[in-house]
Design a protein around this nucleic acid. Structure first.
Lengths: 265, 265
DNA sequence: CCGCTTGGTCCACTTAGTGGACAATGCCCG
DNA sequence: CGGGCATTGTCCACTAAGTGGACCAAGCGG
């Protein structure tokens, strides 16, 4: 009997299981990353599965309505069943209600785009976006985008406020954890960023994901004081210069606190 | 190699495949039916799988965040990943934008609760609900609820306007198709209802799902003239008496036409 | 025209998944 | 308070379900 390892647990807990479930979940997550979906070869590349296997799984998923095959682009995209299940699940996870007003205020007051991301296992996932008015905008971050915890401003502030043990565990094999983001986010840079973040309360990402695309983030905590999400803003470097950072940081912290209060109340 | 048959196609098309995918999809749909989730025995009963199998699949799904195990009730509910994937998929399926305003108008003008359901394979799925002001309300229908096509007012009006071939195919093995709803929805009753629906344009469900819980529906069509959804209202019998039906029907048809226009435009 | 990428299918091999059986816990009722 | 019953959880021998190497076809660019 095979044992699969769970991605999110503190330790990889062996779970009796269904290889297929893990693979299917991975495929759906991959496809959900980009609104335009993913091509078969793309999925094969990123999942390290063989092409026939991916193809077969996708065909089955399509038969269930969980994915669609966009005839035009040839891409695989999330299907109607995912939407339906999601809208049922949404009753339990009403982030919109929770964070939308805050993001709107941030976007209005600053002109930058504002985001709310949540923690899922060892990743952050962007769930809400509110476009700013400033005419130059970054499209690195949008709903559905996932980063390893510690990457980008939201991930950075979350990692900074995670219990020391967990943080060190993640940093222990940082390169593997960070994957392709390791290039910009070297262990050294991240450690320095974490220290500064812990001090100020908010994080600053000086274009580590994409050069010129800056970001700042503040964490949202649950009742146990555990970071479960983050408010963040992104924009171009000139809008995130040192002199403006305290202003943006203050706003971010205010909104993060407000959301934290709502969440805990 | 096993061949699985696809539930929605006109004919059961053999698909090479993944038994597990079908089972997992079935489980997720089942769990998504009720906001409070489902117990393991309940799932076992309705899926005709063995308990160990259901349990193992659920455990794997939980490890992926696709389901959660509610410690209090012991029920399995849809997990955060489903919400996340759903919110990405929502970009492609914006029924809220499409139908919400119409439902709101209906609820306000009539006092009854209004719903929007869509067709998925051979089922209708309720995706939107707008509560009416009338103090006695039925809770038979809510977001996520699925009925076989032909059952309840939405299903009835959809079946009525499906191409004759498909309609007859469904009616051919009605009892199997209708399952537990066959009790109220006998072939005879349904055929009569379909005829009347085709004539008037809107359907009337005189408490076939649950005695005293009436409903009326009007269909929404895509560019090819195929019914893809339905607007419906539910309430208690006294609110759906013969003399009020033309009034309600007219409103339903108006809103259904409006949605159809939006959809096609 | 040929190399290269992509989509799709086949089928022998074997591993992953299955489910009967067992154990434990909790609850109701006589 | 003990026996019946429903529920959750785990084990492991068996085998059918899933895998993936191999193959074919189509499309694209040089």
């Amino acid at each position: 009997m095979a044992r699969i390892t769970v991605p999110q647990g503190t330790q990889p807990i062996p779970v009796q299981g269904t290889q297929v479930v893990r693979r299917v979940a991975a495929l759906l997550r991959m496809i959900g990353r980009k609104p335009g979906g993913m091509s078969l070869p793309g999925l094969v590349r990123e999942t390290e599965l063989t092409r026939p296997t991916v193809h077969r799984l996708l065909a089955s998923l399509a038969a269930e309505g969980l994915v669609d095959h966009d005839a035009a682009s040839g891409n695989w995209i999330l299907g109607p069943e995912v939407f339906l299940l999601g809208s049922v699940a949404a009753a339990r996870f009403s982030f919109d209600e929770l964070a939308r007003p805050g993001l709107r205020r941030l976007a209005e007051e600053t002109g930058e785009s504002a985001f709310y991301s949540i923690v899922r296992g060892r990743e952050t996932v962007c769930v809400l976006r509110e476009e700013g008015t400033f005419p130059v905008r970054s499209f690195v971050l949008h709903e559905g985008v996932r980063f390893p915890v510690g990457v980008a401003s939201a991930g950075m502030v979350i990692l900074a406020f995670l219990p020391k043990e967990e943080r060190e565990e993640i940093l222990a094999d940082w390169d593997e954890h960070a994957g392709s983001f390791g290039a910009g986010h070297t262990l050294e840079i991240v450690r320095k960023g974490l220290a500064e973040t812990a001090l100020r309360g908010y994080s600053v990402n000086p274009g580590l994901v994409l050069e010129g695309s800056w970001g700042m983030g503040a964490a949202v905590f649950d009742r146990d004081g555990r970071p479960v999400g983050a408010v963040s803003m992104t924009g171009i470097e000139p809008r995130f210069r040192a002199e403006r950072q305290p202003f943006l940081g203050k706003l971010l912290l205010e909104e993060a606190h407000r959301i934290t209060a709502k969440l805990q109340g």
